[in-house]
Nucleic acid binder design. Structure first.
Length: 441
RNA sequence: GCCGCGGUAGUAUAGCCUGGCCCAGUAUGCGGGCCUGUCAAGCCCGUGACCCGGGUUCAAAUCCCGGCCGCGGCGCCA
């Protein structure tokens, strides 16, 4: 009887299956241990691992094939499931037939321990690096977080939109955009869906969200920046204040973390001992001015009216953890000079804005606020930021024909994953990271 | 963009400061051998490297210069 892959059973099921029967499994060779007349082969598929034993006196064919196996080769095995005290998990497959589907060359990186090969080299061989269950888990968790975010949005009245990533003008002015050639015209890769989200609200969808790529042409050499990342963006109309936006961000972020933890608790405990598995019922909210004070009390130098340095953010994270017992905190009312033109300012104190950042373990994971929806004010703010209102004409027009008060936020998906799991480098949270040097694979 | 650190076998590292004892050590991998209960198997044998170019010197992995590449910090940001 020929072995058919359609009869294949996921390996994890074998630990509940009836012993004494024959099963077909297939996957990658995790390890091979050759012992003269018997060979142990640990086979791994995405569900788990099991030991296969090939004995010369049971099937010489299978034994011969087993001797030739190399790590990461792809095999299919037909054999009898047996209880075995000596085997991992108490069970193993006694091979009757082993088919080598694809033989692997000697590996260029060590995939059994993610710390044994430097990250750069792992990324060069990303498809192999991801064979490591820990590294694979990061993306299962990321997928779960994205799914949870979508679910939260969908059940809270948000409509998913898909905005253009090829744009004719930079979103916020600045030089941090990638230039591309669009036929015979200059164009850019979108650094944020900001203006289009607002379009969605003003167009009458009222609440919109998008989970998609954002591009930043900033030559960062850090462990927390990518030139291409996934932005979880939301925008909502008819808000009373930016507090409503923070409530939404809090809801999304909490559901992302909770979903990941509840679905992958075991993997998280096994692979990410430093992970945050619980967020407070309500995220603390402090104003920027309070943050300056807290930092000053802790002996950190801050410039009033300026954005926080990354060192100050880290420090603030520690202080909040100590004072409020929370790994996460909203910092609100950022100074106007640290915010883009579309931000709404405090009516009674225009040096400050109705905006916020969300710091998770001392790192900014989200930014948001209420947007300015009054045409004349917005026009002035564009000028005040040194931008030309004429290049924002299509955008400004939206505010002349009925724009409700609104606000929104952008959440960095990879940063949420990184901070939740306690990863040392954001590149680990991106399947194929792009940084100033890396463009391949 | 600015600043700092680094580039040694497939992988990870020692050696570099204080040049010669290094035709480069160790671990792992890889090839071969022994082994019917291992589990990152063990033991034995073998294999394999100083980023590129120039300079200093009797002598360069080691010191100097240039290039390329990598990593990190900062600014800025998600």
């Amino acid at each position: 009887m020929a072995l058919r892959l359609r009869d294949r059973v996921p390996i994890e099921r074998l630990f509940e299956a009836e012993p004494g029967k024959e099963y077909v499994i297939a996957g990658w060779v995790d390890t091979v241990r050759v012992h003269g007349k018997l060979v142990f082969v640990v086979v791994r598929d995405r569900s788990g691992k099991i030991q296969v034993v090939a004995k010369k006196n049971v099937s010489e064919e299978a034994w011969k094939t087993a001797r030739e196996l190399t790590p990461e080769s792809v095999v299919a095995v037909r054999g009898v499931l047996v209880e075995s005290k000596a085997a991992l998990g108490g069970r193993e497959i006694q091979a009757r037939e082993i088919v080598l589907l694809n033989k692997a060359d000697p590996l260029p990186i060590d995939i059994h321990d993610h710390t044994k090969t430097v990250l750069a080299k792992r990324l060069d061989w990303r498809f192999l690096d991801l064979r490591n269950p820990r590294n694979q888990a990061i993306f299962l968790i990321e997928a779960e977080m994205a799914r949870a975010a979508r679910e939260w949005f969908n059940s809270n009245g948000f409509v998913e939109i898909f905005t253009s990533k090829i744009v004719g003008a930079a979103t916020e002015g600045g030089a941090e955009v990638f230039s591309i050639v669009y036929f015979d015209k200059p164009a850019f890769l979108a650094q944020s869906p900001q203006l289009y989200k607002q379009l969605g609200v003003i167009a009458g969808f009222e609440r919109v969200y998008e989970i998609g790529p954002a591009f930043r042409a900033e030559p960062h050499h850090t462990t927390r920046h990518l030139t291409e990342y996934t932005s979880v963006d939301l925008e909502m109309g008819f808000i009373d204040s930016y507090e409503d936006v923070m409530d939404a961000v809090e809801g999304v972020v909490r559901s992302m973390v909770e979903a990941a933890v509840s679905r992958y608790r075991r993997k998280i405990e096994e692979f990410f001992p430093d992970a945050v598995t619980k967020l407070p019922q309500r995220f603390p909210r402090i104003t920027m001015r309070e943050a300056y004070k807290l930092l000053e009390q802790a002996g950190v130098k801050v410039e009033w009216g300026e954005d926080l340095s990354s060192e100050a953010e880290r420090k603030l994270g520690e202080i909040v953890e100590k004072e409020y017992g929370s790994p996460i905190v909203f910092v609100t009312e950022y100074p106007w000079n640290a915010r883009p033109f579309y931000t709404m300012r405090k009516p009674d104190d225009p040096e400050w804005t109705l905006s916020f950042d969300l710091l998770f373990r001392g790192l900014e994971i989200a930014t948001g606020g209420q947007r300015e929806h009054r045409y004349e004010v917005l026009r002035k703010q564009i000028e005040e930021k040194g931008l030309n209102p004429r290049s924002f004409e299509w955008y400004l027009n939206m505010f002349r024909y009925g724009a409700p008060p609104h606000g929104g936020a952008g959440i960095g998906l990879e940063r949420v994953v990184m901070q939740t799991l306690g990863l040392p480098n954001i590149r680990e949270a991106r399947l194929l990271p792009r940084d100033p040097e890396r463009l391949v694979p």
